[in-house]
């Protein structure tokens, strides 16, 4: 499982391919997250598409450049923030006197608008944010683990 050193300097074709596709991936993924309640898609699907930006950067520029651009610690904290926002939105039902996860924002917007489905819209945003940071963190972690397998692991015996 040793990576050759040559993979860090990719050729022009791969680099420019990644450059061109990256904005489309980001924008289209964001569109799928935001319009999740009106058209097919939603939190998870859009989140994975946006997180594929990490992979595109790695393919085009190598691991060192990707690690400089995206900080793993920030991604980890933001993933938990997305989860906390989801739980707090679900608990909005409790604060307003109804059941947990109940749809309490029912009179915002008309059918077909961006923000129209009540609590579910905001929950979908929170899920999308969590998935994009979470999957991105996962991809970066695996690339980091594969990157330095020059060091050996020492295991304590009993």
């Amino acid at each position: 499982m040793k990576l050759k050193d040559g993979i860090k300097e990719t050729n022009v074709v791969v680099k420019s391919g990644a450059d061109m596709i990256l904005p489309f991936a980001l924008v289209f993924g964001l569109y799928v997250i935001l319009f999740g309640t009106v058209s097919p898609g939603g939190g998870f699907q859009g989140g994975v598409m946006v997180a594929s930006a990490c992979l595109l950067l790695y393919l085009g520029y190598g691991y060192k450049a990707t690690a400089n651009m995206i900080n793993r610690e920030v991604l980890e904290v933001n993933e938990a923030l997305g989860a906390i926002i989801y739980v707090l939105l679900a608990a909005c039902g409790l604060f307003m006197g109804a059941r947990f996860c109940q749809n309490v924002f029912t009179d915002i917007g008309k059918v077909g608008d961006l923000i129209s489905a009540g609590t579910v819209t905001f929950m979908s945003f929170a899920v999308g944010y969590k998935v994009l940071t979470g999957v991105g963190f996962l991809l970066l972690l695996m690339l980091y683990l594969l990157g330095d397998d020059d060091e050996e692991e020492e295991v304590e015996e009993e």
Partner: peptide
Amino acid sequence: IAMMTLFLGAFLTVVFGR
């Protein structure tokens, strides 16, 4: 609430408990 408190505690530990 009991179940969600445990999950919320886990998420808060990621944010604040590093």
